[in-house]
């Protein structure tokens, strides 16, 4: 690694913020180059100095100020009488997906046309044809002669059979 590249990385190296592989290359260069090493030492010194300066700057809450800050926060929202505790993001998604699956499954199973088709399929073909053919049976009786005529109509109300 040359001096230009090393100096570009020095601000991060000084704070031990470089990935290991880059840091070892910078370290190898610093062992050989006194100018870059001096630059590095300057960064270290600067970091410590500014850190100490900034950390020495402190301030304090007055007790009343602190109490009023907390009071203001508590007044901004209330957790009392929570009937419904909202789910966090991931459980909410899991519950939603489960609900969709259950609804889709129940719609598929409970569908009336599906049930009808299922029951029709379970009947014998002979019975099915009989059922479909014999929809209505009409018996006409003459009041004068007492003669009977029986009409058997199919589903479309077409005359299937006439029995005299």
């Amino acid at each position: 690694m040359n001096c230009k590249k090393t100096r570009r990385l020095l601000p991060l190296f000084a704070g031990e913020d470089l990935p290991v592989n880059k840091a070892s290359r910078v370290k190898a260069h610093l062992n050989e180059c006194p100018l870059c090493r001096k630059e590095y030492e300057h960064y270290r010194y600067l970091l410590n100095k500014t850190r100490n300066w900034i950390r020495s700057e402190t301030t304090e809450w007055g007790d009343k100020e602190w109490q009023s800050a907390v009071k203001k926060a508590v007044k901004s929202k209330s957790f009392k009488n929570r009937i419904f505790i909202p789910l966090s993001f991931k459980p909410a998604w899991a519950v939603s997906v489960m609900l969709i699956i259950v609804i889709a499954f129940s719609v598929f199973i409970m569908n009336p046309t599906f049930i009808k088709k299922e029951s029709q399929a379970s009947q014998s073909p002979a019975l099915q044809s009989k059922e479909s053919q014999k929809a209505v049976e009409l018996t006409l009786v003459s009041q004068e002669t007492g003669h009977k005529i029986k009409w058997i109509l199919n589903k479309e109300f077409n005359l299937e059979e006439e029995i005299k």
């Binding site: 950390r55 700057e57 402190t58 301030t59 304090e60 800050a69 203001k72 926060a73 901004s76 929202k77």
Partner: peptide, 29 residues
């Protein structure tokens, strides 16, 4: 408070920031 103060170097601003932080902490607890 000190975190806010060291960032702004102004006691009043630091108290405003801290107040905001306390309100947010309660809100998002």
């Amino acid at each position: 408070l000190n975190m806010a103060y060291q960032i702004t170097l102004n006691a009043e601003d630091a108290k405003d920031i801290s107040q905001e932080a306390v309100v947010k902490a309660y809100k998002y607890l």
